[in-house]
Design a protein around this nucleic acid. Structure first.
Lengths: 183, 183
DNA sequence: AATGAAAACAGAGATCC
DNA sequence: GGATCTCTGTTTTCATT
């Protein structure tokens, strides 16, 4: 039980992958705590990614041009990873969401990343979580119907000799706390 | 366990609302298949939620005003649920991400939604999945460090008499296929 | 790093096809 | 439903503090 926590401390090194190889790490600035204004901006943009710059500026109590520079800096530092429309999978005809826990054979675990990246590239896949513990991945996906879900498991997982086991769990509902409808 | 697929069929009643043209349901439009242009718009905005309307219109091969109307309609129909900045939890000082599988006592399952909504409201929580199967929720969260993660489990889950069990799984990495960095 | 003013640009609406 | 035109307002740049 406590081993899990130790493992967390050891494996949370996002910092390694940031920045061009050879360049001095930008992690100091990236992980420097946000000041009060940046916090306001980040929170507001997480709620409404299309909030007009001047409204943002007013909210934060700064000039629009300053606001623009701040937001740009947040994007450059990687605090804001991007701006995205949140699409309802059901509206795209993908009404079934599921989580599939996947375990690889130990000998295939060297290809963990490659296999995970390939899964992530599939149309149905919404998220891939590389996890510690019994399983190797949790795959969050959306399909049009149960048969397509079954086919996904068969075609992309069971058929792969690297995959040792899968366990499919249906999602009844998915709540994204920080996402509020705009308009 | 083969019941799972049956269960899916029973719980995925989105399809019921898709009917022949003229049927009296407000959901018909929402779940009607997107045409080629809407599909382009949705895909582009999922990648870059701040793409200017002009650029979108050019990409889709339609006039800017038409494009604006299309996007508005997509938002109104709920196809686009919102626009959001994607914030790196690590940059906010939350470098540890985990998934906690939570099971409630059967007598508490009547409060499933309430409890889930309360969990979703917590600062650390990024997603709550209500799931079928052994567990009731999967909670995706981010904390500053392993101790805070432990405290979260203790304070918000184990301390709750409705909670029968929890199982915490650390996330090494999380891939969002449809999210690409904007500059 | 933040600001204010000016230039460039995108968005909203009316009108017509 | 879609396009064109025009007006309004915002975004952006840049010189300045």
């Amino acid at each position: 039980m406590k081993n899990i926590l130790t493992e967390a401390a050891l494996t949370s090194s996002y910092s390694e992958t940031v920045g061009p190889p050879g360049a001095p790490s930008k992690d100091i600035r990236r992980f420097a705590p946000l000041d009060a204004i940046d916090t306001i901006l980040v929170e507001a943009l997480a709620r409404d990614g299309r909030m007009p710059n001047n409204a943002l500026a007013t909210l934060a109590g700064i000039a629009p041009s300053t606001c623009l520079g701040r937001v740009r800096s947040l994007v450059e530092r990687g605090v804001i990873r991007g701006f995205h429309a949140d699409i309802d999978p059901a509206a795209l005809g993908r009404g079934i969401e599921a989580i599939i826990a996947v375990r690889l054979h130990s000998h295939a675990r060297r290809d963990l990343r490659t296999i995970g990246d390939r899964l992530a590239a599939l149309d149905e896949v919404l998220d891939v979580y590389f996890v510690a513990g019994r399983e190797d991945y949790l795959i969050h996906l959306a399909t049009t119907d149960p048969l397509t879900l079954r086919d996904f498991v068969l075609d992309h997982l069971s058929a792969n000799p690297s995959v040792a086991s899968t366990e499919t769990t249906l999602i009844f509902e998915h709540i994204h706390p920080r996402r509020v409808r705009r308009d």
